[in-house]
């Protein structure tokens, strides 16, 4: 009788141990899904673009001004789109960096409790609004304004930069605010004890100490802006040309992919995947840069 009980018990422990093992493996698998997805993304997009890169050489894509996918001979120059992406992103940073960093300093240092408590959820909300809605707003509000007061058709680098600048704000603010808050309290106290004013403390002590975190915020904001698609497509006019003014229309890499993917086939489609590869590589470089700065600072 005792033997049977013991046997029963050991069988139950065995089942229990087995369940534990199975669950652990299942959890491990779920954690590895992220790795699998990244490999699938890289694998599929790179193999798709690889054959045309081999056929025409990467220089044909990167340093060529002509995009004529249906002409004979075909031209797959991505240079206007690369320039377009960088120009619009640079314009957006001119708006989002000063405004975003100021707001981050305000929230971390100067804002009274009641103000910070109301601004923070508003910034979260700003991050949640769909990019298409921003794009639509820019199309119905900004584009006519630019057309009426500055001339041109309104669809322009300026409109794209403004809307992307607004969209990058919440991300830059939240990362920069965290960086400023991470500066040890003793730094501030020491500076204030020496008789420095609040602003002097921020200018000479807090901001230099938070420098690398703020730089990370700017770089990540840039990566985010360059990858944005749906808002920018609605307001930049999408002409594949090298711009000569901020009222000029351009086409970004993201817009280029989204606009032509629907009907492209064969080499034309593969060339669009090359645009995807260029975009992916640029964003990964920016992210590695941010990670490097972040690690160097030893935060």
């Amino acid at each position: 009788m005792k033997n049977v009980l013991l046997q029963e018990k050991s069988r139950r422990t065995q089942i229990r141990e087995l369940t534990e093992k199975v669950i652990e493996k299942l959890l491990l698998f779920c954690a590895i899904v992220a790795i699998i997805v990244v490999f699938l993304i890289v694998g599929f997009i790179f193999t798709q673009g690889w054959s045309v890169i081999q056929k025409y050489g990467i220089a044909h894509f990167l340093f060529n001004l002509e995009w004529e996918p249906l002409a004979e001979p075909v031209q797959f120059g991505l240079l206007p789109m690369i320039v377009g992406s960088f120009v619009v992103t640079f314009g957006a940073l001119l708006i989002s960096v000063p405004l975003g960093i100021s707001c981050a300093v305000f929230l971390a240092e100067f804002a009274p409790q009641w103000a910070a408590k109301r601004i923070r959820p508003a910034i979260e909300l700003m991050a949640g609004i769909p990019s298409v809605v921003y794009g639509f707003w820019a199309l119905v509000v900004l584009v006519p304004l630019i057309m009426n007061y500055l001339g041109g058709r309104g669809l322009s680098i300026l409109a794209g930069s403004i809307v992307l600048g607004i969209m990058a704000l919440p991300f830059i603010i939240s990362i920069a605010e965290d960086a400023i808050r991470a500066v040890p309290k003793e730094y501030r106290e020491a500076s204030l004890a020496l008789g420095a004013t609040h602003w002097q403390t921020v200018k000479y002590v807090v901001l230099p100490a938070a420098k690398s975190g703020i730089l990370t915020a700017i770089i990540l904001g840039m990566a985010l802006t360059i990858g944005e698609t749906m808002a920018v497509i609605l307001v930049i006019g999408n002409a594949a040309i090298i711009p000569d003014s901020i009222l000029c229309m351009v086409r970004t890499l993201t817009a280029h992919i989204a606009l032509e993917m629907g009907y492209a086939a064969g080499e034309h489609q593969q060339a669009l995947f090359v645009a995807g590869i260029v975009l992916f590589v640029v964003i990964m470089i920016l992210n590695s840069l941010a990670l490097l700065i972040y690690k160097r600072a030893g935060v």
């Binding site: 990244v38 993304i41 990566a223 990858g227 698609t229 993201t254 993917m261 992916f280 964003i283 990964m284």
Partner: peptide, 13 residues
Amino acid sequence: TLAAVPSIIFGLF
């Protein structure tokens, strides 16, 4: 890395 991938690339994938 996955968090950094832009949505259009997810679309292509």
